[in-house]
């Protein structure tokens, strides 16, 4: 199971952050060639990200590059350079329709062929940042077999919706739900928007708990300080792990006795409960918890 709990934004023209991006152990690092780079530095940022990706070893951390849109003068050159720099994922901003993804995919494929690389190696992610994109989320998610996830970009979205962000996030609930539902239906990851008020730790934790409860796979983060709190909230608790182990144990027992209806502590255990338990254990393992040891303890 690939974890994408945290995707750390790294401005593409910041040499210091580029150098240190991997030491904070986010699940992914995202080098940004778009909004965090001023128009007169697009070329230098491209050179910097290109050289970093072709030289530095990010120690197995997933590398993502947010390119400029194809409606800008920079998007095509970004693709030419980044296909050769070979990040794991290219992220397209402000995706409105499935065609936006298909257009990017076509250019990537062209460059992959020109370089003699295996076609399809570079994966794609779409950031959905407007009302049309939200309504097209499912088609966007299915637009290419390279798609690994869709992400909400809330700042542009709320502006288009003629509102602003609130601590409760009620104004983006529809967009979050649409994106999440589309991602689940398409079988790809759903990544939540950034939390910009970096000094409001309590507000940040509330938001992470909310998106975890909704079912998101992770969140874009804008400072290394936001990484560990997200990982902590996404890590299953001991109680959840214990319950998951018990569920799998009673299922195993029931299978050996060929019994039909199964219950645990007076509650029926059916397929969704088993799937949830398996996911809890998978997430715990991926988070670095030694489940085999816990299983041994449990079986003793």
């Amino acid at each position: 199971m690939k974890l994408r709990r945290t995707m750390l934004y790294v401005p593409g023209n910041n040499a210091g952050m580029m150098k240190d991006a991997h030491i904070y152990r986010s699940d992914s690092v995202m080098f940004d060639l778009e909004d965090s780079v001023s128009l007169n530095e697009k070329d230098t940022a491209r050179f910097l990200v290109f050289n970093a990706l072709t030289t530095l070893d990010y120690g197995g951390i997933e590398t993502v590059v947010r390119i400029n849109g194809l409606d800008s003068p920079y998007g095509r050159e970004d693709i030419r350079a980044m296909v050769r720099a070979r990040p794991n994922v290219i992220r397209l901003p402000k995706t409105e329709t499935a065609q936006d993804i298909k257009d990017v995919e076509e250019l990537i494929e062209e460059e992959e062929k020109a370089c003699g690389y295996e076609v399809g190696t570079i994966k794609l992610m779409a950031a959905i940042e407007g009302p049309l994109g939200v309504l097209n989320a499912y088609e966007i998610a299915l637009a290419s077999t390279r798609m690994i996830g869709i992400a909400l970009g809330a700042e542009d979205y709320v502006t288009s919706m003629k509102t602003k962000r609130s601590p409760e996030g009620v104004e983006i609930l529809f967009a979050r739900s649409m994106i999440l539902n589309a991602a689940r239906a398409a079988g790809i990851y759903a990544i939540d928007t950034v939390y910009a008020d970096v000094n409001n730790e309590e507000g940040f934790l509330d938001e992470v708990k909310l998106i975890h409860q909704l079912g998101f796979d992770g969140k874009s983060v804008i400072t290394p300080r936001q990484i560990q709190p997200v990982h902590d909230i996404f890590c299953p608790t001991n109680k959840e792990i214990d319950h998951a182990l018990k569920v799998l144990e009673v299922i195993k027992e029931a299978e050996s006795k060929q019994s039909g209806v199964i219950s645990l502590n007076g509650k029926m255990v059916d397929k969704p409960i088993v799937e949830r338990a398996e996911r809890v254990l998978e997430m715990a393992k991926a988070s670095g918890i030694n489940i085999d040891e816990l299983e041994d303890d449990y079986n003793e």
Binding site: A15, M18, K19, D43, T44, R46, F47, L48, F50, N51, A52, T54, T55, L56, E77, R80, A81, R84, A85, A114, C115
Partner: peptide
Amino acid sequence: LDCTIRARLEAAVYRAAGSESYPWE
């Protein structure tokens, strides 16, 4: 870092040559 020096030098040279055609290959 070496890769940063290279990146900045490449960018400065292309700017100084007035070229926007980058041979990434």
